[in-house]
């Protein structure tokens, strides 16, 4: 496995798959930056996709602004090797993923113009396996 971001310590080596089809009730608004990239679909976002998005944004912005990554791949996903019979216990961890629900804000940008943020998020969205859109801050009351 390439050295992408994964947890340093875990309580359990493997975990159940769990329910996926829910809408985001937390982490679904821009909290730190001025603009955000919001997921419109749910998925298990692999750690390499998050890293690819970060690299794409930083390459485009060239040290301009500050990028916030709002998701962390803390879910181990196991996969049985090819041509293996069923059984014999749960397989080894194949990759680490972040649980992304529709509405989750994946990345945020601060200190850049809307035009630059749009350009950066367009490139990041190309690296994501799901549909995304750029959002701003919500109305204050």
């Amino acid at each position: 496995m390439p050295p992408y971001k994964i947890p340093k310590r875990v309580k359990h080596r493997k975990e159940f798959r769990r329910v996926r089809d829910r809408k985001a009730t937390k982490g679904n608004y821009v909290a730190f930056g001025d603009f955000g990239l919001q997921a419109l679909e749910g998925c298990w976002l692999k750690s390499n996709c998050i890293e690819a998005g970060r690299v794409a944004a930083q390459h485009y912005l060239k040290r301009e602004g500050k990028l916030f990554i709002r998701v962390f791949p803390d879910k181990p996903v196991s996969k049985k090797p090819l041509e293996t019979r069923m059984g014999k216990g749960k397989a080894d961890v194949d990759y680490w993923a972040a649980r992304v629900k529709p509405g989750t804000v994946l990345f945020e940008l601060a200190g850049v113009s809307e035009e630059r943020a749009k350009g950066a998020f367009h490139r990041v969205a190309m690296k994501m396996p799901i549909r995304c859109r750029m959002v701003g801050r919500r109305v204050t009351v």
Partner: peptide, 14 residues
């Protein structure tokens, strides 16, 4: 920003 540590994290209490 990529971590260069091993691919498997430490399991607490193992």
């Amino acid at each position: 920003e990529v971590t260069d540590e091993g691919a498997t994290p430490e399991v607490v209490g193992e």
